[in-house]
Amino acid sequence: MLEILGSIAQASNLSPIGIDWWIILGGWIPGFLGLALAFVIWARSRRDGDE
C-alpha cells in the first residue's frame, strides 16, 4: 500500500480518481460535452416537431 501511495504521490497531475488530469480534460470532458450536445439537439428537434 505504501508503495502504491508513494508512486501516486510522485505524479502531481493525478486527479482524485487516480488518473492524470490531462486524460480527463483532454478526453473525458470533450466526450461528455459531445453527448450533452447530442441530447440538446435531439430534445430541440422533438420540441420543434422536426419531421
Partner: peptide, 18 residues
Amino acid sequence: FVQAHEAMAAIDIRSVTF
C-alpha cells in the same frame, strides 16, 4: 474504480498518466 487505477499506477505510473 479508484483502487483499479492505483493498482495500475503501482505497476507503472505511465499507465495512468498522459
